[in-house]
Simulated assay, not measured.
Amino acid sequence: MSREFWRLGAVALAIALVATACGGDESGDSTAATTTSGSTTTTQPAASGVDSWGYDLVDPLDVGSGDIGIAGSSTVFPLSVAVIAQWQDEGGPQYSIDSIGSGGGFERFCVEGASDISNASRAIKESEVESCGGIGRTPIEIRVGSDALTAVVSKGNTFASSLTLEQLATAFSLPAGSTWADVDPAFPPHPLASYSPGADSGTFDYFNEVVFDEAEPSPILSSGANIVGEDDNITVRGVADDGCAEGDTTTTCAIGFFGFAFFQANAGDLTAVAVGGVAPGADTVNDGSYPISRPLFMYTDAGIVADKPQVGEFILYYLQNVNSLIGEVGYFPAPDAQLQGAADAIAAALGL
C-alpha cells in the first residue's frame, strides 16, 4: 500500500498538488464560499463572534501548541489539507496528516491508539467500534461533507460514458485479458483495463458495498484490475493515457474510480461515467439520485478531547469553516443538521 506523509509546514505544496495532479482533491482560494442547489441547505460561518452552530468562533492563535495526529482516508485528506492550510495561515500550530486509507486510519485509531483523529470516507464498522472499545475509546462521528464516488474513462472512450451498476460490477470483476464486449456485447471489443484503490481504502469499501452488495471477498481482488493502493494519480494517468481510439479495437480502453475531486482536477483528460443515466454532481448528490454518493467523516473520542483540548478546538474550527472550502476541493457540503450534530458533540466533549 502506497503511503503519503505530509508535514503541513509544506502545506502550500500539498495544495498545489491537489489542484494539478490530483495528489489532493482540494485547493484554490480558501476564502471562496460554496453554494449548492438541491435539497441540502448549507450555512456559512457567521460574521460575528458566534458560528452558525451557536458556538464561539475558534481563533487558531488562541489554541495551544500541543500536537494532533490525523490519519486515514485519502479522499478526506485533501479537504483536511485545505482546512489546515487556512488554520496555519491564521496563526494556528502545525499538525501532521497521514493518508493511509480509511481502514488504515481506523487501525491506527482503534487498535494502535496512535492517532487523535481518524479521517474516513465510510462509516466506522461495528468491528472497529469494538476495537476502539478495547483500548478505552468511544468514537465520536463527525460528518464533514459528501462525495460522489466517480467512475472515469478517457476522452477517447465514447461508448462507456454511461453504465449501469451491473455493467460496473462486470467491468471490475472480469479476469485479465477481457474486452469491453465481455462487459456488454453491444460494446466494441477493445481490451479492458481497470484500476481500483486498495482494500484498505474507504473508496474501495464503498464501491464494493454499492456495486457488489458488500461481497466478501470483493470480486475486484480476484479480477484483472490494477490495484493502485492509495495513489489515485496512478488511476488518473492509467485511464487518461490508455490510448483508446474509436474504430481501432486493438487499443486499450481503461476505467477506474475515485472521489469526485480527483475527477474534477483532471476533467480535461477524463470523462465522468453516468451511473444508471445519472451524472455525478452537486444536484444529484443532494437529491439522492446519484447511486454512489457517500458521506465523509472524521472520528475522535471524548477522552482524547479531554486530554488534548486542541483536538476539539481544531475540529470545531474545521466545522466552522468546511463549507467555505469544500466546493473548491471538489466535494459537497453535508446537511446542516448533521454538521450541527457534530458541532454539538464536540462542544459537549470540550465542556462548552
Rank of each mutant, 00 (worst) to 15 (best):
R7V: 13
G9W: 14
T20C: 08
G24V: 02
G24D: 05
S39V: 13
T40F: 06
A47R: 09
S48D: 15
Y55H: 13
S65M: 13
I68K: 01
F77E: 00
W87N: 01
S96F: 04
S96K: 03
D98G: 08
G101I: 01
G103W: 00
F106K: 06
E112W: 12
T138V: 14
T138C: 11
P139R: 00
I140L: 15
I142Y: 02
A148W: 01
L149P: 00
E166G: 01
A169F: 04
L174A: 11
L174N: 09
P189E: 14
H190N: 15
P191R: 00
P191L: 07
L192A: 02
S194F: 04
G198K: 03
D200H: 07
N208Y: 05
F212M: 07
S222C: 07
V228F: 07
D232P: 07
G238T: 06
V239K: 08
D241C: 14
D241N: 14
C244G: 12
A254K: 05
G256V: 08
G259T: 07
F262C: 00
L270R: 02
T271P: 03
V275Q: 02
A279K: 01
D283W: 04
N286A: 14
N286W: 06
I292W: 02
Y299D: 03
D301W: 10
A302T: 11
V311Y: 11
Y317V: 02
I326Q: 01
Y331L: 06
F332D: 00
L339T: 01
A349P: 09
